[in-house]
């Protein structure tokens, strides 16, 4: 059993928090994993991606080969397109529909959505709306993790356990908001 996931988004959207939760849930379930992250330059509002590989066999390459990813999990719609060539023909795209516009030449969002529609397996979530509903516009990352959760080889309770651990230092309210964001994302995805 294996799952290769490309995490995508924009610097500051909390991609590495998603990775933290998935990594630790994978560890708890006894999987091998490798997660290649981006540090440095790319963080200041630039495109950010992380390769996350989970397997019951040894994982060799830190990078997912193009054409092999089982999932692209993106907190931003255009960013998911950037990595489509990593997706296997049967792979699934789980993406937010809320654009993060910090560049002058952001393409027409309708065209972005059309391009996403060309992927047969897809889950599209309005993460901005769900995050606001959860009480924190910054929790879009947990909305998207929730949306991905029914498609992960990890158990929901393990994911939520590490969401608690991740946000515990910032107080109970943060924990509750992020768990709610996760739930809203999960429900929205199941309805999709």
């Amino acid at each position: 059993m294996k799952q290769d996931i490309i995490l995508a988004g924009v610097g500051g959207q909390g991609i590495l928090s998603i990775a933290f939760v998935i990594d630790n849930a994978a560890l708890k379930q006894g999987f091998n994993f490798k997660q290649a992250e981006v540090h440095g330059m790319a963080q200041r509002g630039g495109a950010v991606q992380s390769h996350l590989r989970i397997s019951d066999k040894p994982v060799f390459s830190d990078l997912i080969p193009k054409g092999v990813a089982d999932m692209i999990l993106s907190v931003e719609p255009m960013e998911c397109l950037r990595y489509l060539d990593f997706l296997s023909p049967e792979g699934i795209v789980i993406t937010s529909r809320s654009p993060f516009v910090n560049i002058p030449d952001y393409p027409d969002i309708e065209k972005v959505m059309d391009a996403i529609q060309t992927v047969a397996n897809r889950v599209i979530v309005d993460s901005d709306k769900q995050a606001k509903e959860a009480g924190s516009p910054k929790s879009q990352n947990m909305v998207m993790l929730g949306a991905a959760s029914p498609h992960l080889i990890l158990e929901e309770t393990n994911l939520t356990e590490f969401i608690r651990i991740l946000f515990a230092p910032r107080g109970d309210k943060m924990v509750e908001m992020n768990l709610k964001a996760f739930d809203l994302g999960r429900t929205a995805a199941i309805k999709c």
Partner: peptide, 21 residues
């Protein structure tokens, strides 16, 4: 042989370079 993969055809992706905060 190369693995089969999908492309994004000619979708005009915009670059998102790092910026000053």
């Amino acid at each position: 042989e190369a693995l089969p993969k999908r492309g994004i055809a000619d979708f005009p992706l915009a670059a998102r370079p790092p910026q000053l905060c």
